[in-house]
Design a protein around this nucleic acid. Sequence first.
RNA 1: GCGGGCGUGGCGGAAUUGGCAGACGCGCUGGACUUAGGAUCCAGUGACUUCGGUCGUAAGGGUUCAACUCCCUUCGUCCGCACCA
Length: 833
Amino acid sequence: MIDKYSPQEIEKKWQDKWEADNAYKVDIDNSKPKYYALEMFPYPSGNLHMGHVRNYSIGDVVARYKTMAGYNVLHPMGFDAFGMPAENAAISHGVKPSDWTFSNIKNMIRQLKSMGLAYDWDREVETCRADYYRWTQWLFELFYKRGLAYKKEASVNWCDKCGTVLANEQVIEGKCWRCDSDVQKKNLAQWFFKITDYADELLADLEKLPGWPNRVKTMQENWIGRSEGLEFELDVPELGEKLAVYTTRPDTAFGITFMALAPEHPLVEKICKVSPKAAEIKAFCERVHSQSEIERTSSESEKEGIFTGIYCINPFNGNKAQIWVTNYVLADYGTGAIMGVPSGDQRDWMFATKYGIDIILTLQPEGQQLKLEEMTAAYVEKDGELVNSGKFTGMEMHKAMKAIIEEAEAQGFGKRKVNYRLRDWLISRQRYWGAPIPVIYCDKCGEQLVPEEDLPVLLPEDVEFKQGALSPLSTSKSFNECKCPKCGGHAHRETDTMDTFICSSWYYFRYADPHNDKLPFDRDKVNYWNPVDQYIGGIEHAILHLLYSRFFTKVLRDAKMLDFDEPFTNLMTQGMVIKGYTDKDGHYVKAKMSKSLGNVVSPEEIIEKYGADTARLFILFASPVDRDLDWSDEGVQGSFRFLNRVWRIIDIFSEAIKKGSISYDVNSLNADEVELRRILHKTIKKVTEDLRDRFAFNTAISTLMELVNAMHVFQSKPINPNLALETGQALLKMLAPFVPHIAEELWSHLFEGSVYKQSWVEFDSTAIVEEEVEIVLQINGKVRDRVKVPANLDKSAIEKAALELPRAKELTEGKKIVKVIAVPNKLVNIVAK
RNA sequence: GCGGGCGUGGCGGAAUUGGCAGACGCGCUGGACUUAGGAUCCAGUGACUUCGGUCGUAAGGGUUCAACUCCCUUCGUCCGCACCA
């Protein structure tokens, strides 16, 4: 008799034993195929939430299953430990960011260990430790040396609350991704990574990622936003200047009646020098600048502009076009100026009708005549033929696009151009708790990299933390002042730190070689372990982290530090954990668990009450991994009940199991036992396929529940000991990836060694074969009867048998049998009229 | 506006290649055991029904012997991007 199931006792026991035995330590082993299972590492906020539990439970099943299936599995964990919250703690509580962070990490490691996750803790990385950020700085220098890191003054996104700039990817609908406050534009000199150099490859290589969800690939595709078109120049005779524009609709170029400039366009200043309307123009520009980013970039806001009084010449037809300054042209896309074709673009139409600018029709549907005076909107369809377009009149629009580009190229005033929505990655942050940018500014020699042998540039401790203060590092005397590495003269350090997304863009390489003190990682080790075979995390990183990591991988490949193109072969994006609650209006609604809504369930409480196995089981069973998971307290109890049921049935089987032997004659089984054995092997097949091919943990678990239900048939009658052994052993092996503690405990009562060290179960296809199958009789597509027939009976035999069934005769009496369709082992359908 | 999901019992979900809709779990109902049950075990549980059946996978239409599954239209809902010229 085995004791009552008590997760509180057995879980701690096994966690300690696994740790003492170094059970999950791995090294390079060329005798097995390698497998790298990775979950996105957490920010050390201090406490695990259910989203973490879900993420790591999924990863743990993958790692444990792959290990049992014979792979050499790398499954590491670490912490993305730089970032704002630590600094906020310093500002509001006077705690040192490092103390705050390390104590949070300590608590989170304790919580992670209480989940029974199969991590190789020897490989843990913490991005805020000098032995890690030294290499983050080293990689910055590598980017710099390759011409991929540069400093420039630019209009950048500024979050006042966080007191720092942000990358474009970190601005969500005009608001800061972290604190949700409005983002402003500021002109600052900042460091950028030249991700745009890789725009084409980042886009094209999405095709090399069949193991990624289409959703994520589409999002990246849209973010990169490639477009093809024509860039050409228009003369501005009054200024002796040229004005460049980019268009994806060269076919409408003959319809230009005005040019629209962004207020930031350099030509605006030149115009102001000669235009009598200079004061008005300047006032307009200032007014646009004072608008928030949301106001300015919303497609709904009113289009406004001011005519400069200056004209330019359309090189295609010599027409004069008014130059306007407007609020709806983006300064940092294309050339910061657009051609205004009111007849072909709805925004231009609205603008032109508002200000009484001419409209020239250049495109109309084939075989139809459009009349401007009857039109109430621009003609924006993507088909038609040209009018009023000189020698291109009458040409089909797609042909015309090509011909007009060729014309511009032949005449020398324009060229074919590819544009991207993607901008360079702004990596400077005016914050303390990040990796210092390893650059020195010398009064004489200018910008200098900190020599490699002087890395890391350590974070100083003599800094002041103030809300909204610029770059805390600049308040440190010991940090700021230094000597120029080139001339030895007076110099000062860069006081900005790097975006934490840089730290997380290469951590999955460091796990392959975490203690290297000569390089970020050894090339051979990374080439052995990486790329990550299965990456698991939240959809919120679809662009940010996943795009940056792809960029890093490509740069490091070009730097010959590794030999592959993509960091993550397969990607699984898990859904959120949601829970119902009653809102302030008394409605029952479901939403992501959050403190402010009060619908949070604490993992620690659940683990304390039911154990980690129950928490893991419920979370994996309640929903497919890529969908949102609806938390249910009753559901958790159901999972706990199931584990108790497993415990009891193994207990009932245990006497028999001890008497059984592994190899035996299956012909000695009685009918009930044959049936159990068939269910067992069907279960093995299904669970294996669900784990190996489908990521379908919920159905794998439901199949295991069916097996346990089938075993209960024998709770009150004797079972063949050999079958008891076969079934019990297979059940525990299959449960082990999901619920490792109870599987290990029950295994230890009955068998030798650790269940985790066992090889995965194979199914016996002969056990699954049934001699007789039940097939469905349909008359005109409706189920009318069921009948047992020998398995694999061929079509004609089934048809013959079906027509002789009394039920078939009864229901087709007096009707003409038109057709009989038989599907072996499934059904037979008689069509009668 | 553009792009991508999703829509199945009271609830979470299953149906992998077009072949028995609702596996498994929750909840609920009844029974057994019991001093007791919020433990355990067994059975039932889509709706309607004149108990023959009929209807049923967001709505409508189509293809097919056969549709949750394929095609068209519509609606709802969630997510991403959004004045990108």
